[in-house]
Simulated scan of single mutants.
Amino acid sequence: MAQKKAHEVDGWLRRPDPDVRIVLIYGPDRGLVSERAKAFVAKTGLDADDPFSSVRLDASEVDATPGRLSDEAGTVPMFSDRRLIWIKGAAAHKQLADEVKALAASPPKDSIILIEAGDLKKGAGLRATVENASGAMALPCYADEGRSIDGVIDEILGRDKLTIGLEARQALRANLGGDRLATRSEIEKLALYCHGAGEVSLEDVGAMTGDVSSLSLDDAVDAVLSGNADAFETAFARLVSSGTNPYLVLAAAMRQFQALSVMRNEMDKGGKQAGAVVASARPPVFFTRRKLVESALQRWNAAALARALDRLQAAVLQTRQRADLAVPSSRQALIALLVESARAARR
């Protein structure tokens, strides 16, 4: 099979097979797809900006012009020994898949075809064609996790002669991983902020990373969990005034209560303490919120969490039925949960 597992991709890209003429790089992490495509191009030794040795196409162009890809692949390069054909935006394009299938059966001698695609399911036409062809290679790209995130952190911070301690690294990792370009952007920003300092501290990470809108939503939800009315009113008012749809606050609260429900079930069935459950939670609870989540688990039992989720679901339905009442109905539902949390803390 002409494919690599996710953890094998970087190794293959460091030493690509010279006999491979068709490379498909695909996956939900578009940033990682783009980064690896550039890495592959660099290994070919071809200049992607030289019109005599490369051509860039959009997948929709290939689909709209039957035979275009075959013609480009058959063009003899004028000033280089090979020619790069770089196709972007591939998805469920039947014409592209058909032409790649024909080229895979008789690989071009003078061309290298590089295809960037989104998340292709197993068995999808283009992916299946490349995976089952000789002289081709399919390389998957999934969201960064664990070791791969550490690798990017070490690469960027090491380049700027910066070190980072364990606690600061854990805090940084908790804010990364959704998309490789976003991950790099966050670390680059942190490295610039800490330039010349020698070491990245926990305070530096807190000051420079994380999504502001996400943190604002967390502020509102955390105020509900802790029963802090003043903090909730401040956070909720700030979100509404900035144009945030109140549904997003309800959705954030639902995600948190669902996570609490899973952890509470683990406590009840496994006889574990709240601290142990929070410490082993997956995805991990951000370190600054662990005490808050532990307290919430002690305040809310399984039945109360189920009622809270029912209330939030009813509020979501109401915001859809009466958009003009979205703000007051969302606020009322969240305040009710806040009051229940505050009462539980006093018991």
Score class of each variant (00 low, 15 high):
204 D>E: 04
287 F>D: 02
270 G>A: 05
262 V>I: 15
269 K>R: 11
244 T>C: 12
265 N>S: 15
313 Q>D: 10
224 V>N: 00
297 L>S: 05
316 V>Q: 13
207 A>D: 14
310 D>A: 08
272 K>F: 10
315 A>M: 05
306 A>W: 01
256 Q>P: 10
203 E>I: 05
242 S>H: 04
261 S>P: 01
279 A>G: 10
202 L>Q: 08
304 A>L: 01
317 L>R: 10
277 V>P: 00
302 A>I: 02
230 D>L: 08
272 K>W: 02
216 S>Y: 03
271 G>W: 07
243 G>Q: 12
283 P>N: 08
284 P>L: 11
223 A>R: 04
256 Q>W: 03
209 T>I: 07
229 A>N: 04
212 V>F: 14
316 V>M: 11
319 T>A: 13
263 M>A: 10
310 D>E: 10
281 A>T: 13
303 A>E: 14
296 A>T: 00
253 A>M: 04
273 Q>M: 11
259 A>F: 15
281 A>N: 11
309 L>E: 02
276 A>K: 13
276 A>R: 07
260 L>K: 03
201 S>Q: 05
274 A>Y: 05
214 S>M: 12
253 A>I: 01
255 R>H: 12
282 R>G: 03
267 M>G: 03
224 V>D: 01
265 N>E: 11
235 A>S: 08
233 E>M: 14
203 E>W: 05
265 N>I: 09
292 L>W: 05
260 L>A: 02
317 L>A: 15
318 Q>S: 14
312 L>W: 03
289 R>Y: 09
300 W>E: 02
297 L>F: 12
314 A>S: 15
303 A>L: 14
211 D>M: 11
279 A>H: 13
258 Q>I: 11
283 P>A: 07
262 V>S: 07
286 F>Q: 04
204 D>W: 02
276 A>Q: 09
215 L>I: 11
271 G>S: 06
272 K>M: 14
229 A>T: 13
292 L>K: 03
313 Q>R: 14
222 D>I: 04
241 S>L: 13
320 R>C: 09
256 Q>G: 07
308 A>V: 01
227 G>S: 06
258 Q>H: 13
263 M>I: 06
280 S>K: 09
315 A>P: 09
299 R>Q: 11
302 A>P: 00
308 A>I: 03
247 Y>G: 13
291 K>P: 04
227 G>D: 07
200 V>N: 06
316 V>W: 03
271 G>L: 04
199 E>M: 15
230 D>N: 13
293 V>K: 04
260 L>R: 02
228 N>Y: 08
236 F>Q: 00
273 Q>N: 07
258 Q>A: 07
281 A>G: 10
222 D>M: 07
201 S>M: 06
266 E>I: 07
244 T>N: 09
219 D>Y: 04
220 A>E: 02
